[in-house]
Design a binder for these strands. Structure first.
Lengths: 148, 148
DNA sequence: TAATATAGTTAGCCTGGGCTAACTTTTCAA
DNA sequence: TTGAAAAGTTAGCCCAGGCTAACTATATTA
């Protein structure tokens, strides 16, 4: 109950459980293992840890649901992911797939302070739409030879 | 010799060896342990791994230097760090210390493709100096109540 | 130069987070 | 309704990367 910090790996598990529940109404162990590309045994192990930390309701062979705390944590991670991905795609003009993968890693590295600033920046750039984004794209393309 | 990927932890070791060598001409085990806040024993372990990967020249009780490959890798990591930190400080207007810490984590999460785009963006914003940065600062401050 | 303080290593331990193989439970279709 | 397939668990393994305690090597200085 007092476990504040959680590992990147466990954050990933929480996030896919959250997404699966959102998409299908329920999170199955098999699907978790496929999304994260880990074995089913690893999923079982992670679920035990998450249960110990009070983030998941889980009994062997039972349903997998997030606790209130777990859902809160998962939602935060998912939100970070979206903000970061949106920065990569909308401002840096990085392709969807690369952005998606990079956001998956960065979401564990950036704290709330940084991410909320980033969110603010993305908002600002979007609602400004003063041509900065397009201008940057041109600038960037003209310089692309320099990029290894 | 064929070891492409390296862990975040080992990247950290390389980076501080690189920085210490730059600052003092030599990297001592004690200093590495202090900078990374790990035990001296952990440093010894890491040095053995790095040697095995051909990234440091190291013999027990001997000098610690980077191989050519090690220096290249370390320089890349350090460069990533600088670009990311610069984005945080100069564009997002995050305070130095927070930015420094966040960059330390993000440098392991972002690939070259993303970082080079980011570099490009920072460059663009700096040389533009079309008032976007200051304008964003104002925007951000006026909205700060909304940020938890 | 000998004694001690500092630096570095080794041995042995722990945890997280993977894996496979084998087993158990559940589901579903004949 | 029962038996095979699919899903899930367990046991036992491995590795990275931490740690402490105890040892060894090096440096310092009285």
């Amino acid at each position: 109950m007092k476990n504040k910090k959680i590992s990147a790996s466990l954050e990933d598990y929480l996030e896919v459980i959250f997404n699966l529940a959102d998409e299908f109404g329920v999170a199955r162990s098999k699907d978790i293992s496929e999304r994260l590309d880990v074995s089913r045994a690893s999923v079982t192990g992670a679920l035990r840890l998450l249960k110990k930390k009070g983030l998941v309701n889980y009994e062997p062979y039972g349903y997998i649901t997030l606790t209130e705390n777990g859902a809160k944590t998962a939602a935060e991670v998912a939100k970070k992911h979206n903000i970061i991905e949106s920065f990569f795609v909308n401002i840096l003009d990085i392709d969807e797939e690369t952005a998606q993968e990079a956001a998956c890693k960065a979401e564990h590295a950036l704290g709330n302070d940084v991410v909320s600033r980033l969110m603010c920046f993305v908002e600002y750039m979007n609602q400004q739409d003063c041509g900065v984004a397009e201008d940057f794209r041109r600038y960037c393309n003209s310089n692309r030879k320099k990029v290894k």
